[in-house]
Amino acid sequence: MNPATTALTVRDPWALVPSIGNLDAYITAVNRLPMLTAQEEVALGKRLRDHGDLEAAGRLVLSHLRLVVSVSRQYLGYGLPQGDLIQEGNVGLMKAVKRFDPDQGVRLVSYALHWIKAEIHEYILKNWRMVKVATTKAQRKLFFNLRSMKQGLKADAAEADLHRSTLTPAEVDTVARELNVKPDEVIEMETRLAGGDVALEPQTDDSEESFAPIAYLADDASEPTRLLEARHRDWLSGDGIAQALSVLDERSRRIVEERWLKVNDDSSGGMTLHELAAEYGVSAERIRQIEVAAMKKMRKALEATA
């Protein structure tokens, strides 16, 4: 939004600021706007504070648009459009004008600088990467100072170290001391700044070699269906089997246990059909029939509790 729209009645040249969409024309226009004298600034500030005069607010904003353009140039290295940086800086400028107290004896340019930078900083942190790289106060301080400090340290380094990309332990300590942060935080931010965004979804290339992280980053172990299946298997192997065995008579239960649930020390398993037949004085075929009937009975019991 063009800040000129904040004024109700603005006379030339205040109404000559074009849209930021035409960035070159916008910058040329704001650099031609006349600056306010200290007396004019105080008078306009009092009109805004005491009477809510929007025309006065508009003139205060418009006369400082060149400041926003100047500040935005300091952040072009982050790869974001200058028009967007100016847009956010203008928001900060309008916040500063709204809170400006002309009786403090401070020029608006000094007061507004903090608000302009704060809005631009917040915009950069939200849009520089898909994942926000700085959240704490120390991380924000490192984000906006580490790269320039690294360049300064490299300039002071020996010729052989000019191509080194990472900081030495001594340089980490220097940065931490100057910014009043922990060395571990310096190392962490250096790692974050050196990284880059990776698209999770597949790209337009359909070749088999074009593999997006979404294909291999999924944790199948945490998939809800698999969790339910694993929980059901655990129940079957414990309480489920015990509950199913409880519906059998003593002979059927012992046959099932000996045939399927017992493991001897030599890993040979339980008794064979012939061994059980000899113990109960029946044929091996009869033992097999009892086993089949018992298994069906157990299966029905488990299905009833599923």
Rank of each mutant, 00 (worst) to 15 (best):
G195T: 09
L146K: 01
S237I: 15
G105K: 12
E188L: 11
A242S: 15
V30L: 01
L85K: 03
A284D: 11
S148F: 06
E201Y: 13
D234W: 08
F100W: 07
N90G: 10
H114M: 07
R11G: 08
A138V: 11
G45D: 04
I86Y: 04
A215F: 15
E285K: 11
V181K: 01
E223D: 14
T28D: 12
E40R: 07
T272I: 14
R47F: 04
L23I: 08
I241S: 11
A118L: 01
R147Y: 01
P183G: 06
A284V: 06
A215K: 15
K150V: 11
M1Q: 11
T168C: 05
L36N: 01
W128E: 11
F211W: 15
L76C: 10
A138E: 14
V186N: 07
A306G: 07
S63C: 01
W14G: 05
E178N: 07
H64D: 01
A25H: 06
L93V: 11
V131F: 10
M271N: 12
I116K: 00
G281L: 09
G196H: 09
G79M: 02
V97L: 09
S72Y: 00
G105Y: 10
E258I: 09
V42F: 02
V97E: 04
R192D: 13
L167S: 04
V198K: 09
P81T: 05
G92N: 03
E40A: 05
A294W: 05
R11C: 07
K95S: 13
N180E: 10
L227A: 12
S63W: 02
R59E: 08
N127P: 04
G89T: 03
S70C: 02
L228M: 14
S19W: 00
K296M: 13
E88D: 07
D101Q: 12
A118R: 06
E201G: 13
A176N: 07
L65T: 05
T168H: 05
A160S: 12
V17Q: 03
T135L: 08
V263C: 14
K182I: 01
A112T: 07
L142W: 05
T135N: 06
D156G: 06
R288Q: 14
A277Q: 11
P202N: 10
Y26F: 06
L193N: 10
N22Y: 08
L273H: 14
V10K: 12
P213E: 09
E201P: 10
I187H: 10
T9G: 12
L273I: 12
M189Q: 11
A304I: 09
